[in-house]
Nucleic acid binder design. Structure first.
Length: 117
DNA sequence: GGTGTGACCAGCT
DNA sequence: AAGCTGGCCACAC
């Protein structure tokens, strides 16, 4: 792990994808948490950018499990259908009200804590 | 190769 | 208490 070679072969995007794919069923995390896990707190915007590019990726990225720090589904407009993101979350047992996840801190999945760098 | 922009976050005013 | 600004890094033009 210490020999991680961050280069063009494994870009920031690939790292983000790997973390997002590790999010368990019925849980959710935030852009900032992922950015913090990758080492840059201020890079939260890049995580969102990576999600935008995830649609082009051949891999299936569960981007609906990634929301902002307060649990609001800020990226729902990028799913093609604005209600798709909420429906996906609700199908996993997550309650969404007013585009915001209910009891977000309860289902919050912190990669830095769960994966334990 | 500089500039703008983006699904964010935290700190000031 | 609420709004605004800066910062962070990768990508497209």
């Amino acid at each position: 792990m210490a020999d991680y070679k961050v280069d063009t072969e494994f870009s920031f995007f690939e790292n983000v994808y790997e973390v997002v794919k590790l999010i368990p069923y019925g849980r959710a995390t935030s852009y900032g948490a992922i950015a913090n896990y990758l080492g840059s707190r201020g890079s939260a915007r890049m995580v969102g950018w990576a999600m935008n590019a995830s649609h082009q990726s051949a891999e299936a990225i569960p981007a609906h499990r990634v929301v902002n720090r307060i649990g609001v589904l800020t990226g729902r407009h990028h799913f093609g259908a604005p209600e798709l993101m909420q429906q996906l979350l609700e199908s996993e047992g997550i309650i969404v009200e007013n585009n915001q996840i209910k009891d977000f801190k309860t289902i919050f999945w912190d990669p830095a804590r769960e994966l334990k760098i």
